[in-house]
Amino acid sequence: MRLTKLLKLFSMIFAIALVAAACGGDDDAGSVTTSECGSDLGVAMGDSVTDLSVALVAPSAKDDVAFTQSMVDSLKRLGIDPQITDGTFVVEEAAAAIRGYAEDGVNIVIAHGTQYGGSLAEIAPDFPETSFIWGTATDTQGLANVFAYYPEADQGGYVNGYIAAALAGDIGIVGPVEAGDAVAYIEGFAMGAQANGASAPSIVYTGSFSDVALATTTAQAHADNGVGALTGTSQSAVGAVTVATANDLPWFGTQSNTEAWSSDLTVASQVYHWDIVLSDMIEQIEGGTLGGEAMSLTLENGGLVMEFNGCYDLDSDIRDGAESIIADIIAGDITTK
């Protein structure tokens, strides 16, 4: 009898140890990971979570190392190989694609762009059997067959800003259009930087999500002004990264992991893991609920992941400080808005 109890105890300890090991491998738990220097950044296709057909309509290229790629990578993690219409900056083209997929009987149509909201309000009621997933948006416009998603990008922005302030006193930010998650990220970044003693970062919105030349010129203006670190968002930010590289300035990414642009100078990236909310939405769709809820990505739910660059030699104190900040944000001890 005693032996049986002892075996049970050992079994329990062994099981707990296994779970702990699985959850805490390396330092990469939940909302923080570190890339292996020189490793392939590509996302592997996961086991499929659904048999439903999925289509994605997105404004920029599917491999833009930014907004659209974050969604494509998230779908891969869920084992979904969607039909894709990308590069639809023109809303009318996106609307035609969204309607076309719905007419073709696709079960789930993801409209990956805030600007598609108006079109969706017209299209969704015409296809009550189709579920539309739309973002970034904080509400579903009252549509029963629309789910909405939104990243609390200010959280990762705050962390990036906090780290940047530890590396440089003056920081330059290259923003695209003053809207959506770009504003959230930039405002969070500025808060984090100032919380760690930096002066208010210099923020420039170029007015375009895609104009690389403007992003490059803006970043160069920041560099000329003597900033010690740069960050930016949208696919146009690749232009700012080339300036960071030319001037040897640390770079902070968001949306996707920007190590693809700069493996040496990217310090950390806030990466959107839309799969966290998509899996929940798909589960509801399979259960017959086609929409009606808005969900957000946060550091707490693992939808926002801070990916540190294994190639960048970040001081361990700074890294520890950043992880402490992440924990505080998750615990609600730090407000990032």
Binding site: A61, G87, D211, V212, A213, G239, T242
Partner: peptide
Amino acid sequence: LALQLAVFQHNLTN
């Protein structure tokens, strides 16, 4: 333009 910016992407010229 492409070699000054050192990149290419969709509609680079804007």
